[in-house]
Amino acid sequence: MPTVELTKDNFEETVTGSEIVLIDFWAAWCGPCRMFGPVYEKAAARHSDIVFGKVDTEAQPELAGAFQISSIPTLMAVRDRTVLYSQPGALPPQALEDLIGRIRAVDMDDVRRQAAGSRGAK
């Protein structure tokens, strides 16, 4: 599946309507972003069940600000509307594949139980 350009207009719908969404926060002037782009595109072609979104931080400063993106590229992984990963830096192909495997393996019931427990422990 090709990557999807995420904007403030389609971001919420994309994230809530998909089980797993990877989001690449990038900018055209960013050298590491340009190097990571083809790695990200190839992964998107291999994993058609995952939405691979791209947020151009120059065109979408509201989204970058909402997620406190201060360094690009930043890769974020969202599963079942929960952010499981958010780190700056371009990943090499194998590290991206490893991350995708870890995101798939997360027990979301356990994540929800932990979140509910931390909300109740005040």
Rank of each mutant, 00 (worst) to 15 (best):
Gly53Lys: 08
Thr7Val: 11
Arg119Gln: 14
Arg112His: 03
Arg34Gly: 08
Phe36Tyr: 14
Phe52Ser: 03
Ile100Tyr: 05
Lys8Met: 09
Asp49Lys: 02
Phe67Gly: 06
Gly53Tyr: 09
Ala66Glu: 12
Arg46Met: 14
Val83Ile: 15
Ala116Glu: 14
Lys42Ser: 08
Leu99Arg: 01
Leu22Lys: 05
Val106Asp: 03
Tyr40Asn: 05
Gly101Pro: 03
Met108Ser: 06
Glu41Met: 04
Thr57Leu: 06
Phe25Leu: 09
Thr7Gly: 10
Val51His: 08
Gly37Gln: 15
Asn10Ala: 12
Gly101Ala: 03
Cys33Ile: 13
Ala27Thr: 10
Ser48Pro: 09
Met108Leu: 07
Met76His: 14
Met76Asp: 09
Ser70Asp: 05
Trp26Gly: 04
Ala121Thr: 13
Asp24Ala: 02
Pro88Gly: 02
Gln94Lys: 07
Ser86Met: 13
Arg79Ser: 09
Gly17Ser: 11
Ile103Lys: 00
Gly120Val: 01
Gly65Ile: 02
Gly53His: 07
Ala43Cys: 00
Gly31Ser: 04
Asp56Met: 06
Val4Leu: 02
Ala95Pro: 00
Ala116Met: 11
Glu62Asp: 01
Asp98Arg: 09
Glu12Ala: 09
Arg81Ile: 03
Met1Pro: 12
Val15Glu: 09
Ser86Tyr: 04
Met108Glu: 04
Trp26Gln: 04
Gly31Glu: 05
Ser18Thr: 14
Ala45His: 09
Ile23Arg: 12
Asp98Ser: 10
Gly101Arg: 03
Glu58Pro: 12
Pro61Val: 07
Arg113Leu: 04
Glu41Val: 05
Asp109Tyr: 01
Asp56Val: 06
Val39Glu: 04
Glu19Trp: 14
Glu5Lys: 12
Val78His: 12
Asn10Val: 13
Ala44Ser: 14
Ile69Ala: 10
Ser48His: 08
Phe52Arg: 02
Met1His: 08
Glu12Gln: 10
Leu99Gln: 02
Val83Tyr: 13
Thr16Lys: 15
Ser48Asn: 09
Ile103Asn: 00
Glu97Arg: 05
Glu41Asp: 09
Thr14Glu: 11
Ala28Arg: 15
Thr16Ile: 15
Asp80Tyr: 02
Ile23Asn: 08
Ser86Ile: 11
Pro2Ser: 04
Gln94Met: 07
Asp24Leu: 02
Leu6Tyr: 02
Val4Asn: 01
Ile69Glu: 13
Trp29Val: 12
Val78Gly: 09
Arg112Met: 02
Gln114Glu: 10
Asp109Thr: 04
Ser18Phe: 08
Ser18Asp: 07
Glu62Ala: 02
Asp56Gly: 07
Arg34Lys: 11
Gly65Asp: 05
Ile20Ala: 10
Pro93Val: 01
Val106Gln: 04
Ala66Arg: 13
Ile103Glu: 00
Phe52Pro: 01
Glu13Ser: 06
Ile20Gly: 10
Tyr40Cys: 04
Arg46Asp: 15
Asp107Lys: 00
Met35Pro: 11
Cys30Leu: 10
Gly120Thr: 03
Thr57Pro: 07
Trp29Met: 13
